[in-house]
Write a protein that binds this DNA or RNA. Sequence first.
DNA 1: TCCTATGTTGTATG
DNA 2: ACATACAACATAGG
Length: 266
Amino acid sequence: MPELAEVDYFRKRWNPGLGQVIERVLLHARAGVFKTSDPRSIVRHLTGATLLSSEAAAKQMLFRASGETWLGIHLGMTGELSLQPPDYTPKKHDHLVLVQAAQNLVFSDHRMFGRVQFSTGPKAPAWWTNIAPPVLSAAFTSKAVAGFLKRRARTPVKAVLLMQERFPGIGNWMADEILWRAAIHPKQPAGSLTAGEIKTLHRETRWVADHALKTIGETFKDPPKTWLFPHRWENGGKCPRTGAPLVRETIGGRTTCWSPARQILH
DNA sequence: TCCTATGTTGTATG
DNA sequence: ACATACAACATAGG
């Protein structure tokens, strides 16, 4: 279930392992999560290394270890990171386990849409530095959003919000939350948004990212009932602002929930 | 059995 | 070259 804030929450779960030696590395070398990395290289370089730091950007995490090693993890659809006791026995879907004296750091993902990346060298690798600037950074301007929407003029705005090259970290639930707050219909073609709607979309994107990081990103608890979030999968769910029924439909290949009383196609 | 799932990527088509 | 739409990836659970 990982989008921007969930990813940051999972990243922090490994915090107790920072500054500590990785004594052993256990992995399922043939798991699909190693499609873009070499599991033997991971074992060779990380065994005996010290885990130094971590950061999150968009839906990715970067763990730096001694010996100029860079471990990247993308959680895909069902991935998660957990902290397990030293005597932990890896389970079926645990693809990567960093064994330390005080705990095991575990990456598991039953559906295997996640990815483990690995590089060595003095500089952070391209797969990390190429991630688009965060929606909470100064580079994420209303003007940049306007230009991006223009180039995707005929695509439903919902699908455009899922494009990581401009909205890094935004996923299915955040996109629905943003559009609901901005009172924009998810099917509205991106090129047909008014100047006012673009400004609102930009503002709400930042608001949702900021508040998700402060709530879910810290505690993993669901946002309050005043958000669309807790209502969007309920059968017979009601819009928390209008009280009118919510609807669901596939838009841009993803199930989308919106409030027809608030979000009107024009 | 059939359908769904908080994601990305490759491919076909315009 | 770019924009657009959708199947494919792999697995569990309702």
